[in-house]
Simulated scan of single mutants.
Amino acid sequence: MDKENLTETSWMNAPESNSAAIGEADLNLLHDARRRVIEELGKIIVGQEEVIDEILICLFSRGHVLLEGVPGLAKTLMISTLAKTLDLSFSRIQFTPDLMPADVTGTEIMEEDRATGHRELRFMPGPLFANVVLADEINRTPPKTQASLLEAMQERQVTAGRERHQLDDPFFVLATQNPIEQEGTYPLPEAQQDRFMFKIYVDYPSFDEEFEVARRTTGTATAEAEPVLRGEEILRLQQLVRQVPVSDHIVRYALSLVRQTRVGGEGVPDFVEDLVGWGAGPRAVQFLILGGKARALLQGRHHVQVEDIQALAPPVLRHRMVVNFAAESEGITSDEVVARIIDATPTTEDELSRDARFQKIFAS
Rank of each mutant, 00 (worst) to 15 (best):
K3W: 03
N5C: 02
N13D: 14
N13I: 01
A21T: 14
G23D: 15
E24W: 09
L27A: 04
N28Y: 10
H31Q: 12
R35L: 13
E39T: 14
G42S: 14
G42C: 04
I52H: 05
D53L: 14
I55V: 15
P71T: 08
G72P: 01
A74S: 13
T76M: 07
M78Y: 00
I79L: 10
S80A: 11
L82M: 10
L82P: 02
A83F: 05
T85H: 01
T85F: 03
F90I: 07
S91A: 14
S91T: 00
L99W: 09
P101C: 05
T107H: 07
E108A: 14
G117D: 10
L134P: 06
E137V: 06
E137D: 09
R140E: 09
K144T: 11
A147K: 01
S148L: 04
E155Q: 14
T159L: 03
R164T: 15
D168V: 11
P170K: 02
L174V: 15
A175H: 01
Y186C: 08
L188C: 10
M197S: 08
F198E: 02
I200W: 00
D203C: 04
D203L: 12
F207M: 12
E210N: 09
V213M: 12
A214E: 10
A214W: 06
R215I: 07
R215V: 11
T217V: 04
T218A: 11
A221D: 13
A223K: 13
G231C: 11
I234N: 05
Q238A: 06
Q239Y: 00
D248N: 12
D248G: 11
L255R: 14
R259Y: 06
Q260G: 11
R262W: 02
P269C: 09
P269N: 11
F271N: 09
V276P: 02
W278G: 01
G279P: 05
G281I: 08
A284R: 05
Q286T: 13
L288P: 08
G291D: 09
K293R: 15
R295S: 15
A296N: 05
H302D: 04
H303K: 14
D308S: 00
A313V: 03
H319T: 01
H319K: 02
A327K: 03
E328F: 07
G331K: 08
D335V: 07
E336T: 02
R340L: 02
I342Y: 07
I342D: 06
I342F: 09
D343G: 13
A344D: 15
P346V: 05
D350E: 15
E351R: 13
L352W: 08
Q359F: 04
S364W: 13
